[in-house]
């Protein structure tokens, strides 16, 4: 991201770009584990969406469809709170980081 000179900045230190933090890929923090979505076991309770601190659960056309690993930090709250007997979310080992900022 090119950094502005002082004359290019909005007066009063405002940030006029609502929600532009989406360019900050918190998924790069993930180390060692990530959630895996097993659709067949999913009852669409939305608890994973609810309890994800990093907005990494994909919701498409009213359904949970998996994860956005760009943001998932691998905290495991989703898997922990997944209520089905046969879990629809399991934490799996992750060897390498796939995402790096700026490469998106």
């Amino acid at each position: 991201m090119k950094k502005e000179t002082w004359t290019e900045l909005a007066i009063g230190a405002l940030n006029l770009q609502a929600g532009n933090s989406v360019s900050n890929l918190t998924g790069t923090w993930r180390s060692g584990r990530k959630p895996e979505f097993i659709e067949d076991n999913c009852i669409q309770c939305f608890f994973c969406w609810l309890y994800c601190p990093h907005f990494a659960v994909r919701v498409e056309e009213g359904k949970v469809t998996g994860f956005n690993y760009d943001y998932c930090t691998g905290c495991g709250l989703c898997a922990e709170e997944c209520p089905t007997k046969e879990k629809a979310i399991v934490m799996v080992k992750e060897e390498t980081k796939i995402i790096e900022e700026g490469k998106k």
Binding site: K3, E4, T5, W6, T7, L9, I11, G12, A13, L14, N15, L16, A18, G19
Partner: peptide
């Protein structure tokens, strides 16, 4: 309708420019 963020936090990369911008006033 214009969702602005007023009073964000600056680290070393922006504070100086924002202060200079303030001084201009």
């Amino acid at each position: 309708s214009r969702k602005i963020t007023v009073g964000p936090i600056d680290f070393t990369d922006y504070y100086f420019e924002h202060k200079r911008s303030q001084i201009e006033g």
